[in-house]
């Protein structure tokens, strides 16, 4: 591979290009190149994410306000409007799950949480500002106990079995693993 002029030319080209590349990278190390080229995707994504969290807080603020006043049914009616307006947004389903649970509709609460978590797994993450991991864990514990007992008392009941399956889905998501 180092026999004739052509080989030598190729080796020389290779060396020159590699040196040029190292010089180029060395000169720009630590510069603002990343931001200037608009390629720092991680930062852009974090900013978009935080903007989204802010928007969610603003959109669903009236619902949270009603809940704080103890007006769960009014909050539910308000939420209905928002869920219809933003059907792909998981937050409405999660809030609905929280309200339904407080109102004693456990099966429907579980179904709402499942719909929300399927749309956005961030609600299970400890690190997310949207995290509801603790609430979901408590819901699963309650679901396993109450829905599990109903399933045991009514073997073959498909509605209760379907509810228990939803609890197990949340349980599986809480357990982690690859998605």
């Amino acid at each position: 591979m180092f026999k004739d002029t052509f080989d030598k030319l190729c080796w020389a080209s290779l060396a020159i290009v590699l040196i040029a590349l190292l010089v180029l990278l060395g000169m720009n190390a630590g510069s603002e190149g990343k931001a200037a080229s608009g390629l720092d995707k991680a930062v852009e994504r974090e900013m978009a994410y935080h903007a989204r969290v802010e928007l969610i807080a603003k959109l669903y603020g009236p619902v949270d306000g009603l809940r704080k006043e103890g007006k769960n049914q009014e909050a539910l009616l308000k939420l209905d409007e928002l869920v219809r307006k933003y059907p792909g947004e998981a937050h409405g389903h999660i809030l609905q799950g929280e309200i339904l649970r407080e109102m004693g509709a456990l099966d429907e609460a579980v179904a709402s949480y499942v719909a929300g978590v399927k749309l956005n797994g961030d609600y299970l993450d400890d690190k997310s500002p949207l995290s509801r991991r603790g609430d979901i864990q408590r819901l699963v514990d309650e679901g396993l106990k109450r829905i599990g007992a109903r399933a045991a008392a009514n073997p073959g009941n498909r509605t209760i079995a379907a509810s228990l399956q939803k609890v197990n889905y949340l349980r599986s998501r809480l357990a982690g693993g690859c998605e």
């Binding site: 990343k34 931001a35 080229s37 390629l39 720092d40 995707k41 991680a42 994504r45 974090e46 994410y49 797994g121 961030d122 993450d125 690190k127 997310s128 982690g176 693993g177 690859c178 998605e179």
Partner: peptide, 10 residues
């Protein structure tokens, strides 16, 4: 900068 690492999820 073009490399993206998840901040959330698995």
């Amino acid at each position: 900068g073009f490399l993206v690492f998840s901040a959330r999820g698995s």
